[in-house]
Write a protein that binds this DNA or RNA. Structure first.
Length: 287
DNA sequence: GCCCAGGGTGTTT
DNA sequence: AAACACCATGGG
């Protein structure tokens, strides 16, 4: 089924960017692949993104949508080649990873979606995280613009607002499959819905203060806070360490800790994550 | 059937 | 501060 509305086409000014690599890189959980297109919803709009040698086509978006939403969401204006040189200068062994991940951008996701998604992510695997979030969106999200075009129905629903989730009982979160994270979700959504967390301030606050605010939420620890800050609040200096990154820092990237605290540490982290994803055999499970 | 996952909390050393 | 048990669930 064709996506109605306009189809916005961007010519190939961004030779490095890969929509597929970016949207399937583990920083977001809401994009599905159908017939080579990345299909999903952000900021209340469902689109399908296609990329070939001529550039990017965003089905379901017009020029205004691109300027007001997708350009920023996909972080199209940042010079990732320059960042790649900077982080490789700090840790030369990143050269390989930066090569594999040259097309990956750090998405500018909605703060609440990033925070909530990574609360769900703890001690969990990506396919199951996707399933839980999909059910949350289908049950408690609003239909997006173009929702009727979605191939997977849940892809056409917006991420539920904190207000919508604050009305959901802990028991219901468990029925959806959240497991022991259910109590964290009720707690976090109630506090955010109540206005306790100032998202705009977190975007520009001194980084340790931003961390402190997020860490005050029960269910948000260091790793979840770093992910929320990096993917939802535009704080590229944040460096999430999950079990995979930890193994990488203990084996092939022992010098990687030098990145922590640098301006683009989060981008370097994403490069390492992409490298691990492409060489899983090199990072043997050894917990 | 088993092991593990983009970990955090609470408790014990 | 560092180590440890415990947490629910289902994908692989």
């Amino acid at each position: 089924m064709a996506v109605h509305n306009c189809n916005y086409h961007i010519t190939a000014v961004h030779k490095q960017f890969s929509a597929a690599d970016t949207l399937t890189s583990g920083q977001c959980f809401r994009w599905s692949k159908f017939d080579g297109r990345l299909c999903g919803t952000a900021f209340g709009r469902y689109v399908e993104i296609e990329q070939d040698d001529d550039g990017l086509t965003i089905y379901g978006a017009d020029a205004d949508d691109y300027e007001s939403v997708w350009r920023n969401y996909l972080d199209m204006d940042r010079d990732y080649e320059a960042i790649s040189r900077i982080v490789t200068g700090i840790e030369p062994r990143l050269a390989d990873s930066a090569q594999y991940a040259a097309g990956v951008h750090i998405l500018a996701q909605e703060p609440w979606e990033a925070l909530c998604s990574f609360v769900i992510s703890q001690n969990n695997n990506i396919p199951r995280i996707r399933g839980i979030i999909s059910r949350l969106c289908l049950n408690y999200g609003e239909p997006a613009a173009n929702a009727e075009s979605a191939r997977d129905k849940a892809d056409g629903y917006a991420f539920p607002t904190p207000q919508a989730l604050s009305d959901v009982s802990e028991e219901t979160f468990k029925e959806i499959g959240c497991g022991y994270r259910a109590s964290y979700l009720t707690e976090v959504s109630r506090r955010v819905a109540h206005g306790d967390i100032d998202f705009e301030y977190i975007k520009k606050a001194p980084i340790d203060e931003a961390r402190k605010i997020l860490l005050s939420l029960k269910g948000v620890g260091p790793k979840v806070a770093e992910c929320a800050l990096l993917y939802g609040f535009g704080r590229l200096e944040c460096f999430p360490v999950d079990v995979w990154i930890r193994r990488a820092l203990e084996t092939e990237f022992t010098g990687g800790t030098a990145l922590i605290g640098s301006q683009y540490a989060g981008v370097a982290q994403q490069y390492i994550f992409e490298y691990i994803r492409r060489h899983p055999e090199k990072f043997v499970k050894n917990k």
